[in-house]
């Protein structure tokens, strides 16, 4: 397969000078990744420049602030420890909410998926709760858990729970019955079937569920912090807006962005490791 850009570059030269034809060269994946990165940086840089220019010229600065002000705000918060303190609070709540929701979701998902009868009874009940708007639970949770950490953790856990639950449930149900029979004929008991077939097979789905639910854990915490809290990134965000300081809100969002990126990177690393068998047979590019 010849690369399009190569052949158009070299075709005239070959005709004129009879340069021996080179073997078609593919752009190496590293090079390509680097190019993509440069393009992304350029794109974001251009956007920031445009923002800086447009602020107070086309749009009132009160509404959108501007990158240089936001940067000043970030530096100030970095300096006085506001960032560190509130980020830490948010990360803690996110991690706890994620762990709680994910383990409950996996457990119930596995039980309802693996035992048909249990599933028949419990699955409709879970679905009924799922259709409830989660925000409707906030007042109740506030009443039960108060303004502290527990409220934010529980709120985020309920969101994570359903995502992980459904992925685990369907993952377990999807397991090939042919595979299960084969392993049972080889002599596996129920527990061995669960450990060696059902769990690894469902792991693809579970991992996907875990991966998509991490950002939701963060969203849950931030929303809870905005609703009722005096700490955390969500609180900073809401406070900025209530004081008509767009710079503060954007600085808080920037902080959240960094957290989200780090968390996503981490979870990708973990799940990719567990799913190495899945990517082993993919053609190289």
């Amino acid at each position: 397969m010849t690369d399009a850009s190569m052949s158009t570059d070299h075709a005239p030269a070959a005709r004129v000078a009879r340069v021996p034809r080179k073997a078609p060269v593919r752009i190496s994946p590293t090079r390509r990744r680097l190019e993509n990165l440069v393009l992304q940086v350029v794109l974001i840089g251009a956007f920031l420049l445009l923002w800086e220019y447009a602020s107070d010229r086309w749009v009132p600065k009160l509404m959108v602030s501007k990158p240089s002000d936001i940067w000043t705000q970030i530096v100030r918060w970095l300096g006085d420890g506001t960032f560190a303190r509130n980020l830490w609070v948010t990360i803690q709540a996110t991690a706890l909410g994620f762990l709680l929701g994910a383990s409950a979701g996996m457990l119930l998902g596995f039980v309802t998926g693996a035992w048909r009868r249990v599933g028949e009874v419990l699955q409709p009940i879970v679905t009924a709760f799922y259709t409830l708007p989660r925000l409707a639970l906030a007042p109740l949770f506030l009443m039960w858990f108060g303004l502290g950490m527990e409220f934010r953790v529980m709120f985020s856990a309920t969101i994570v729970f359903f995502l992980v639950y459904y992925n685990t449930y369907f993952g377990v149900r999807e397991v090939s019955s042919e595979l299960i029979s084969a392993v049972r004929i080889m002599g596996a008991n129920q527990l061995q079937v669960a450990l060696r077939v059902i769990i690894p097979s469902a792991l693809v789905w579970v991992a996907a569920g875990l991966k998509i639910s991490v950002p939701y854990a963060l969203v849950g915490v931030v929303v809870a912090e905005m609703l009722a809290s005096d700490e955390g990134m969500g609180y900073l965000l809401a406070r900025g807006a209530s004081q008509f300081s767009a710079a503060q809100s954007f600085a808080a969002i920037a902080g959240l962005l960094v957290v989200a990126l780090i968390v996503d990177w981490l979870i990708t690393r973990v799940t990719d490791r567990a799913l190495r068998w899945k990517t082993a047979g993919v053609p190289q590019n």
Partner: peptide, 16 residues
């Protein structure tokens, strides 16, 4: 469980 069964289909565990 007293037989070894080589089925017509593929029953290898993909993750092992």
């Amino acid at each position: 469980r007293e037989v070894g069964y080589m089925t017509q289909g593929d029953t290898l565990l993909p993750w092992a």
